[in-house]
């Protein structure tokens, strides 16, 4: 079994209206997901598609209304494993300010290991290594308030890495960043995946960020509506548009050229691919 697996996962939000009548809203509707160790998985979807709710299931911040979620063979509904699950599946959230606890970078990175009861010398080792890994060693004594958005997110990632997770779930980590911040964060995440073999589940609505993923899930109305390699997904430009998503300009251009009868391949992901294809025609 994979490191993360969900079977027929359903989640209903319960709200109470003005007359205190119970209303349910189905945020996740029968999701099956399987992630192998070391994979880089992307979950795409527009705002409100259920992707963040899904993320919160993967480390037991939420438990399913129906169906099951396993993390490394542990059922998230089993209370006795809750801290093991959260240690193994680290989570990075959207707003960089609202997840940094301490007023000094290194102390924030140490927060997770402290909670796990790691011995002091070991905490220092882990903090040093994690900060090194995200390239923030130079800022270890700084206040998080003085950092850019991208740097804050890297600190948040280091805070998760210091807990030595097997898997990191990033819930729209770049939504509040500028393009440079976005690049910084993605670079760090890819390095972690490549070098430390950490399984990554990236949740986003930026299409450019998923081109390097091993596998992509697209969500809409709580359901997985598309899945496949980035190339398979990106070759379906019209379907993506129907799900309120778009494709990178290069993919769109290739698609439109193809519509006009030019012989270019489906699902072009990079500028180079398109240029090569067009030059061969010329």
């Amino acid at each position: 079994m994979g490191i993360v697996k969900t079977a027929k996962l359903i989640y209903d939000y319960i709200r109470y209206d003005e007359n205190e009548k119970e209303e349910t809203f189905r945020a996740i509707d029968g999701v099956d997901l399987e992630v192998e160790p070391g994979q880089f998985i992307a979950v795409l979807g527009h705002n409100g598609s259920g992707k963040s709710t899904l993320a919160k299931h993967l480390n037991a911040l939420l438990v399913p209304s129906e169906g099951t979620v396993w993390l490394d063979n542990m059922d998230t509904r089993d209370d006795s494993h809750i801290w093991d699950i959260r240690q193994e599946a680290g989570m990075v959230f959207q707003n960089p300010d609202n997840q940094i606890v301490a007023s000094v970078v290194e102390e924030d990175v140490g927060f997770g290991p402290e909670n796990l009861g790691v011995e002091t010398p070991e905490i220092w080792k882990r903090v040093a290594k994690s900060l090194e890994g995200v390239g923030m060693t130079a800022y270890r004594k700084h206040s998080p308030n003085k950092l850019s958005g991208g740097q804050k997110q890297r600190v948040a990632i280091a805070g998760v890495v210091a807990m030595q997770p097997k898997c990191i779930i990033l819930d729209e980590p770049t939504a509040m960043l500028d393009p440079n911040g976005r690049k910084e964060v993605l670079k760090v995440v890819h390095e972690l995946n490549r070098e430390e073999k950490v399984t990554v589940i990236l949740i986003t609505h930026y299409m450019e960020e998923v081109t390097d993923a091993d596998y992509v899930y697209v969500m809409d109305h709580g359901k997985v509506v598309m899945k496949g390699t980035p190339r398979e997904i990106f070759s379906q430009v019209e379907t993506l548009k129907a799900y309120r998503l778009d494709v990178p300009q290069v993919t769109l251009l290739a698609h439109e050229l193809k519509e006009s009868g030019v012989d270019v391949p489906d699902g072009v992901l990079t500028t180079g691919e398109l240029v090569d294809a067009l030059c061969r025609l010329n």
Binding site: Q249, V250, L252, L253, T271
Partner: peptide
């Protein structure tokens, strides 16, 4: 924009495209 890069790359490869194009 990505388009600018594509157009410049195509021009370099000898395709007579307008490098000033900025939209798809």
């Amino acid at each position: 924009p990505q388009i600018t890069y594509i157009m410049h790359a195509l021009a370099e490869h000898g395709l007579a495209v307008n490098t000033e194009a900025t939209t798809v």
